[in-house]
Design a protein around this nucleic acid. Structure first.
Length: 220
DNA sequence: GCGACAG
DNA sequence: ATCTTGTCGC
């Protein structure tokens, strides 16, 4: 797996370990607006979507999106270097104030404790939860995911229709994360906000790409 | 060297 | 993630 020329993977790991120290685990209460974010790809173009979902009303309230040129390949443990910016761009389009973001990927259940959801949460100083469809790191012990090196609980298994690997991203506790994901599992194997974001991202992908600016971003 | 490996 | 036909089941 080739990374861009000049990319220092050792430096990247140091950055991840450093940012991981800023992850905070605090209880989240009065969760009313939950955002779901996801990215779809077509060639070297990323189509990202952010959806604000109202828990009380059980429906989406607002959508944010962004179309960007891909700048980094998919490399296990370095997913945020590929998807973080596109997701941030889509999130910034949202006007509604939200309580937490659900991310398609790991939170702290990562070899350097900084999966995509944790990186996003720390970078923006917001509450986030990692919801992955498969495991990246850790040992399954019953319904919990444990760090094989420290024995620390780094996540939990939540059965929607299929098992989901849930972990803290930032500013939430694992219990909060698990309860929130559970309560939002409706018709799909993914919590509603993520399903909506996934569908919106794929819908964007179907449209014709516009003109990219000097930052590699196009209107959407 | 071997196996594992989010999207 | 994406590529990609048919096929099994409700």
């Amino acid at each position: 797996m080739i990374v861009p020329r000049g990319f220092d993977i050792e430096l990247a790991r140091r950055v991840q370990r450093r940012l991981a120290e800023r992850v905070v685990q605090i209880p989240l209460r009065d969760v009313q607006y939950v955002v779901g974010v996801d990215v779809a790809y077509k060639g070297d173009v990323a189509f990202s979507a952010a959806v604000v979902y109202s828990v009380n009303e059980g429906r989406p309230l607002e959508y944010g999106c962004s179309i960007n040129k891909v700048v980094f390949p998919y490399v296990p443990t370095l997913l945020s270097f590929r998807e973080l910016m596109p997701i941030v761009r889509a999130l910034r389009k949202i006007k509604t104030k939200f309580d937490v973001v659900l991310v398609d990927g790991q939170g702290i259940a990562h070899p350097y404790k900084l999966g995509l959801a944790a990186h996003l949460g720390v970078a923006l100083g917001i509450a986030s939860i990692g919801v992955a469809k498969s495991k990246l790191y850790g040992e399954i012990r019953g319904n919990l995911i444990q760090d094989p090196r420290t024995g620390e609980v780094i996540g939990a298994l939540v059965i929607c229709r299929r098992p989901l690997y849930v972990s803290v991203g930032n500013m939430v506790t694992l219990d909060d994360a698990v309860n929130i994901v559970r309560s939002l599992c409706k018709t799909s194997s993914m919590p509603e906000p993520l399903l909506l974001a996934h569908n919106k991202a794929n819908e964007l992908k179907r449209r014709q790409p516009a003109e990219f600016d000097k930052w590699g971003e196009a209107p959407c």
